[in-house]
């Protein structure tokens, strides 16, 4: 028998102590579960009642009036409620709600928290800030370059949701470089931001980076930007196959016979490209 091993269980009371500790831990866990449930139910109930109490004030705000002064907690609840509602409406309703929020200094705390060292805190602040994002494009632009990928992606979604067309060039440039955002998220954001003119793409349609340029041209087509025709046609002469194909696709989407000349001039460099180009030429000719 190896003498060292039996020594462990014979430490007086060790086994008993372990069992007792386990029992205590288990008992505690069970208690926490039950306590957690009770406390959460109570808190949720209180918040619900508070929300019901302050809800009528939203209507006052929407009508452009200032609601009566509220106790601090109620005011906080009203802020949350107004922020939630703001994301569901647009036009004058939204404007009235966001102006009230700004008047309440709603943005201050969130802007500060967007500089937190913790990604989760930054993300939550950004999310709460979303309803008034269009009033602070610089802050959102900064978040597009956040060091955490998920925060950057969230910022892109906020930019898109808030229709911040001014951020389109910055979004597109995030396709490449050090702090990238997944292409699909960028496309989705740009499409949601819905720029109405190619001018809002800035110089990304002539960007020296092929991926940025290809994405820009592709999205110009998906957005049906008629004034992007020349920029798209210019992409046909690019040395990059990605850019050329993006241009062909976008010309197809715009469906303008005016592009026929450019297409016919194009020097295709692979059978696949030739095939696609001919399909589009055919479509445009037939009408």
């Amino acid at each position: 028998m190896i003498p060292s091993i039996p020594a462990i269980p014979t430490i007086p009371g060790l086994a008993m102590a372990l069992l007792l500790t386990t029992a205590t831990v288990c008992g505690l866990l069970a208690l926490i579960v039950v306590a957690e449930r009770i406390i959460r139910t109570a808190l949720a109930h209180r918040e619900e009642k508070r929300r019901d109490r302050v809800r009528p004030h939203i209507l006052t705000i929407v009508d452009g009036d200032t609601p009566a002064t509220l106790p601090r907690r109620d005011r906080a609840a009203l802020s949350r409620l107004v922020a939630d509602t703001a994301s569901q409406v647009r036009g004058e309703d939204r404007e009235a709600l966001t102006q009230w929020l700004i008047g309440q200094q709603f943005h201050r705390a969130h802007l500060r928290r967007m500089k937190s060292p913790f990604a989760l805190t930054r993300a939550r602040a950004l999310d709460r800030f979303a309803p008034i994002a269009e009033h602070a494009p610089r802050s959102i632009e900064r978040m597009l370059g956040d060091r955490d990928l998920r925060v950057r992606s969230l910022a892109a979604q906020v930019a898109g949701r808030s229709g911040m067309a001014a951020l389109v060039p910055e979004l597109l440039r995030r396709t490449e470089g050090t702090r990238v955002i997944p292409a699909r998220i960028i496309s989705m954001a740009v499409l949601r931001a819905a720029p109405s003119s190619i001018a809002e793409f800035g110089d990304t349609v002539t960007d020296s980076n092929h991926r940025v340029r290809a994405l820009a041209l592709d999205l110009a087509g998906q957005l049906n930007l008629v004034d992007a025709r020349r920029a798209i046609e210019a992409g046909l002469d690019s040395p990059s196959a990605d850019v050329r194909m993006a241009s062909v696709r976008s010309i197809q989407r715009l469906g303008s016979p005016l592009s026929l000349a450019a297409l016919k001039r194009m020097e295709t460099q692979s059978p696949e490209e030739l095939f696609h180009t001919e399909v589009v030429i055919h479509e445009l000719t037939v009408g």
């Binding site: 929300r51 809800r55 929407v62 409620l81 939630d84 509602t85 569901q88």
Partner: peptide
Amino acid sequence: DDEDVRALVVH
């Protein structure tokens, strides 16, 4: 089902 939206529309 959204209470906030409902309140606004009702209003």
